[in-house]
Structures are given as C-alpha cells and as structure tokens.
Simulated assay, not measured.
Amino acid sequence: MDYERAGDERKLQLQELESLCLEAYENSKLYKEKVKAVHDKSIKRREFQPGDFVLLYNSRMRLMLGKLRSRWDGPYRVEKVEPYRVFHLNHPSSSELIMVNGHRFKLFHGEKMAKNQELEIFLLEDPPTAED
C-alpha cells in the first residue's frame, strides 16, 4: 500500500516537471520573438537598383598587413538584381560579372560628388602665436 502511494506521488512529480519544462519552452519562445522584433527594428534595409555604384567589403583583408588600409574595394556598378539579395556587380576596368550577397556592400557616394561642380576648400592655418 505504501508503494502504491509512493508511485502516485512520483507520477504527480513527473507531471509537474513536464509542465515546468513546457512553460520554460514557451517562455523561451516568447523571449526569442521579442528579441528578434527589437533586432529587426534596428536593421536598416538597403535597396540597390541596377546602375548604382557600390563598395564591396573585402573580408580577406584581416590576413594582410596594413592596419589603416581600407577594407572596401570598388566602386562596382550593380548590373542585375536577383531575389534573396543576390547582385551581379561589374567593375569598370573589367567586363567580368561577379555575384555577391547584398550584405557585403554599401552605397558609393563618390559619383554624386564628382558630378557636383561646387567644391568648398578649407585651408588650415596655424593659430596665431604671442609673437605675431
């Protein structure tokens, strides 16, 4: 008789443990959804059109020396846009097209500046000293 009561008590403990596990999974799922929503809100969507100029991130630069060298190559021209952020890029000095994921490049603003004829130049001068 004591064994039967102990068995029933053990079954209740197992049911409580299972319900706690299910509750933990549900809480984890809710937490992940909230974190994803906050993360997705802070991501800027960058849209590129054919004809835009972009700079390509060189991920192999870490192996090279040159701490102050730029990790961005280019400019490249976007030739074709495919689904899932796949882009075909063309370098102006070659006719070869390369396929690149859209996360690896950013918009190049140098072309807009070359068209602008007005350029303001600031000459840096030393500050006046007490002797002057």
Score class of each variant (00 low, 15 high):
75 P>F: 05
11 K>Y: 02
31 Y>C: 03
98 I>A: 05
40 D>G: 01
123 L>M: 11
82 E>T: 02
80 K>Y: 08
101 N>D: 15
132 D>G: 00
24 A>Q: 06
74 G>A: 14
82 E>R: 10
61 M>E: 03
118 E>G: 04
115 K>I: 08
62 R>L: 11
91 H>Y: 14
94 S>M: 06
23 E>K: 06
130 A>E: 08
97 L>M: 08
2 D>N: 08
92 P>L: 02
39 H>D: 12
4 E>P: 00
122 F>M: 07
9 E>V: 09
102 G>P: 03
2 D>S: 14
25 Y>M: 11
56 L>Q: 04
118 E>W: 02
29 K>L: 13
1 M>T: 09
97 L>E: 04
31 Y>T: 07
130 A>W: 03
2 D>G: 09
11 K>V: 06
4 E>Q: 12
5 R>G: 07
1 M>P: 14
132 D>R: 00
112 K>L: 15
104 R>Y: 14
12 L>E: 15
35 V>G: 04
66 G>P: 06
5 R>Y: 07
82 E>P: 02
28 S>Y: 06
122 F>K: 06
60 R>G: 14
68 L>V: 00
87 F>I: 05
74 G>Y: 10
106 K>T: 08
105 F>A: 03
126 D>N: 14
120 E>Q: 11
68 L>C: 03
17 L>C: 09
33 E>R: 11
65 L>F: 03
18 E>R: 09
130 A>C: 07
22 L>N: 11
28 S>M: 05
110 G>Q: 05
33 E>H: 06
22 L>C: 08
44 K>N: 09
96 E>S: 09
61 M>S: 15
38 V>G: 05
51 G>L: 12
22 L>R: 14
81 V>E: 01
80 K>A: 06
61 M>P: 01
36 K>N: 15
29 K>N: 15
85 R>V: 03
28 S>F: 07
34 K>L: 04
94 S>W: 00
46 R>A: 09
19 S>E: 14
45 R>W: 04
65 L>P: 12
78 V>R: 00
1 M>W: 00
24 A>R: 12
86 V>P: 02
45 R>G: 05
83 P>T: 13
111 E>H: 10
36 K>Y: 13
45 R>N: 12
125 E>W: 03
72 W>Q: 00
10 R>G: 02
95 S>P: 11
16 E>K: 07
105 F>Q: 01
82 E>C: 12
29 K>M: 14
13 Q>L: 08
33 E>L: 13
116 N>I: 07
54 V>Y: 00
114 A>Y: 02
5 R>I: 13
62 R>F: 10
63 L>I: 09
21 C>T: 06
88 H>K: 04
10 R>M: 08
106 K>P: 05
99 M>V: 11
104 R>H: 13
21 C>V: 12
76 Y>C: 02
113 M>Y: 06
100 V>S: 03
97 L>H: 14
4 E>G: 10
20 L>R: 15
27 N>E: 14
63 L>F: 14
81 V>S: 00
15 Q>L: 13
73 D>P: 03
52 D>T: 13
49 Q>E: 15
13 Q>V: 11
51 G>T: 06
60 R>C: 11
129 T>A: 12
10 R>C: 08
14 L>S: 01
